[in-house]
Amino acid sequence: MRRELNLAVLSAAIGLSLSAVPSVHAANSVTAVDLDWTGAVVTCRTIQYVLENEMDYKVKTVSMPGGAGAWEAVRAGDVDYYCETWPSYNPVKSEYLTEYGGDGSLSIVADTGIVGSSGYYVPRYMVEGDSERGIEATAPDLKSYTDLNKYKDLFKSLESGDRGTVIACPVVAWECEDQKRMDLLEVDFHAQIMGSETAHWAEMQAKYKRGEPFFAYAWAPHWIHAALDMVEIEMPVYDEAKWPATTWAQDVTFKFANPKFMEENPDVVKLLEKHRLTNSQQATMIYEIDVNKRDTDEVVEEWMAANESVWRTWLP
């Protein structure tokens, strides 16, 4: 018991000394969210940079996976704004926008400037060969989805049996419908869902490093295109009526925010409205962070310093 008393006394003393610590909360504080893909983090950090360095705001960032949970956080006011939403990948989006957007508990602010595209890729060495690495072209005629069945033996995997394998869209909840797409297009492939983005990119990267054939889903802008040299396979153009037997629509990504926050912080809203990044601007930063494995803040600060003319136009 004596020892516990010691501990109690110690903690009491710590508690007392706590009162001496000055409060560090700035008056203008906003909460942003770092989502789980680097593009969204970069978009968010560029906004944060301006808020902190030009507008005297203190930005608190929380990290969490994107998706419905994060939408809910904005609605509840735990997070003030959400930097980058890809409409194709939020099957709950319509529900949220009618439920929360409709009753005013979420508001769309503006586009981010990033236009996303999604599709299927094979490594370039499969089509053209790679003399440097000593890889021969195994599928020289592979251009469109109609050629896939011809080469399906190349893409066989343990779990696919006689069929080829497509490394499919990694998260079931994104509702990409890869298997249905393959079946509807009569491509004899098995859609292997990796379970997480991490697993998806890891699998692609490992196969690429070993020079093996693979056929995989990916989206752009993304660092994977900088790290791996790949060719996109032609798919039928997007048509809502035929979905999922087509490719995805172009994703005009956008920002949204908590309406109460928007009322109280018109300055921030103006910044969010004017803020735009292009695909290539975002991709440069993503490359530095994910391929060269550099620190996110360092990369963003460097880019902001070099591109002052760009972000000056965002200022309210």
């Binding site: 998706g67 949970g69 809910e72 998260v171 909840a173 379970g195």
Partner: peptide, 16 residues
């Protein structure tokens, strides 16, 4: 890439 009940948990979580 594990399947089974855990995957259902994840899907439910992503959809909140």
């Amino acid at each position: 890439g594990g399947k089974g009940l855990g995957q259902e948990v994840f899907t439910g979580m992503s959809l909140a």
